[in-house]
Simulated assay, not measured.
Amino acid sequence: MTSPPLMTAADAARWIAVPTAASHKYTRGVLGVVTGSSPYPGAAVLGVEAALRTGVGMLRYLGDARPSDLVLQRRPETVTVPGRVQAWLLGSGMGPAADRDGAARDRLALAVDSGCPLVLDAGALDLVDTASAPRVLTPHAGELAALLGASRAEVEQHPLASARAAAERHGATVLLKGSTSIAVEPGGRARAARSAPAWLATAGAGDALAGILGALVATHAEQVRAEPAVLVDLAAAAAVLHGLAAEAASAGGPFTVLDLCAQLGPTIARLLREHPTP
């Protein structure tokens, strides 16, 4: 099967929403986030950090007390009450449906029922068929195998076909994470992203990628509603930004996911300088 076209840095730069003098926090995109849990609070911190550094006007975080406290300690600008949202990021650091308590179910239902575009990661992948809004899944090979009822080896051997099968089955865009990430939309169009160093294979990297993608979806929410197929471009762009920021953080050696997040602003600034919008 032919490999999908690679998204370049220049391609990704076109999906960065640059504010103008007339912009305010609502026009710059409001991202709602339901991630993390008491056992895995760090996923919430990393996703929020990445989303804010990618560029949204406001971020609303709804979660358990422990991750909420940690998010506010790290990013005090985060809003922790329900309100206006243009897109949602769900599931990072959350367990399967059987492990959710009533509060977690209510938060996820609020997001799914909102009609806003959704980024479904990790513990929220099972919600794909309960939502009607445009949505993008961000599984790794093991999670995609579970969605398809296949083995991880089969997915790793046939990544494009596997991502395409899931996109068609669930009517959602799929971003299959890996050394080469592949984004596929239900109509079959696909993009690949390959810009990350091998040092990026580390815990928390996927949480940051989900945050980056959530920010891009929130800043393009109206376009996504009108044309859900653009999610494939946003997903591939997120993977490119993730990889380039990791490359900058690494400089040839190991790094932490917070180091990656700290490089998102400078990476975006460099892309905008090198690839200005016509």
Rank of each mutant, 00 (worst) to 15 (best):
Arg273Val: 08
Asp259Ser: 08
Val224Cys: 09
Val230Asp: 13
Gln263Tyr: 01
Asp259Ala: 14
Thr219His: 05
Leu241Thr: 01
Leu231Asn: 13
Ala235Gly: 10
Leu213Asp: 14
Ala249His: 00
Ala249Phe: 01
Arg273Gln: 13
Val232Lys: 12
Gln263Arg: 11
Leu244Ile: 02
Leu244Thr: 01
Ala235Arg: 02
Ala221Pro: 06
Leu264Arg: 02
Asp233His: 08
Leu271Asn: 12
Val217Met: 15
Thr256Ser: 08
Glu222Pro: 12
Ala246Gly: 14
Gly214Trp: 05
Ala251Lys: 10
Gln263Gly: 01
Glu274His: 09
Cys261Gln: 04
Leu271Phe: 07
Gly214Ser: 05
Glu247Val: 01
Ile212Arg: 03
Pro254Lys: 12
Asp259His: 04
Ala238Ile: 07
Glu274Phe: 06
Pro254Val: 08
Glu274Met: 15
His220Tyr: 13
Val240Phe: 07
Leu272Tyr: 10
Leu234Ile: 08
Ala269Arg: 15
Ala235Val: 08
Thr219Glu: 06
Ile268Met: 01
Arg270Asn: 14
Gln263Thr: 00
Arg270Ala: 07
Gly214Arg: 13
Ala218Val: 06
Leu216Ser: 15
Leu264Ile: 10
Ala210His: 05
Asp233Tyr: 07
Gly265Gln: 10
Leu209Val: 09
Val257Arg: 14
Gly252Asp: 10
Pro266Gly: 00
Cys261Met: 04
Ala229Asn: 14
Gly211Asn: 10
Leu213His: 04
Ala246Trp: 03
Glu274Pro: 13
Ala210Lys: 11
Leu216Gln: 11
Ala236Arg: 14
Ala245Trp: 01
Cys261Asn: 08
Ala236Thr: 03
Ala218Arg: 07
His242Trp: 05
Ala221Asp: 13
Leu209Ser: 04
Ala245Asp: 03
His220Gly: 11
Gly214Val: 09
His242Cys: 05
Ala245Thr: 00
Val257Ser: 13
Leu216Lys: 11
Ala249Met: 00
Ala251Asp: 15
Leu258Thr: 14
Ile268Ala: 00
Asp207Ser: 06
Asp207Asn: 08
Pro228Ala: 12
Ala238Ser: 05
Ala210Val: 03
Phe255Ala: 07
Val224Arg: 15
Leu213Ile: 04
Pro266Thr: 00
Ala235Asp: 02
Thr256Cys: 13
Ala229Arg: 10
Thr219Asn: 03
Gly252Gln: 15
Pro228Arg: 13
Leu216Glu: 04
Ala248Leu: 00
Ala229Pro: 13
Asp207Thr: 04
Leu213Val: 09
Val224Ser: 12
Gly253Arg: 03
Pro266Glu: 00
Leu272Met: 05
Leu231His: 08
Leu258Asn: 09
Gly214His: 06
Ile212Leu: 12
Gly265Lys: 15
Ala251Pro: 00
Pro254Thr: 06
Arg270Phe: 03
Thr267Pro: 00
Asp233Cys: 07
Ala262Leu: 07
Leu244Cys: 01
Leu213Pro: 05
Gly211Thr: 10
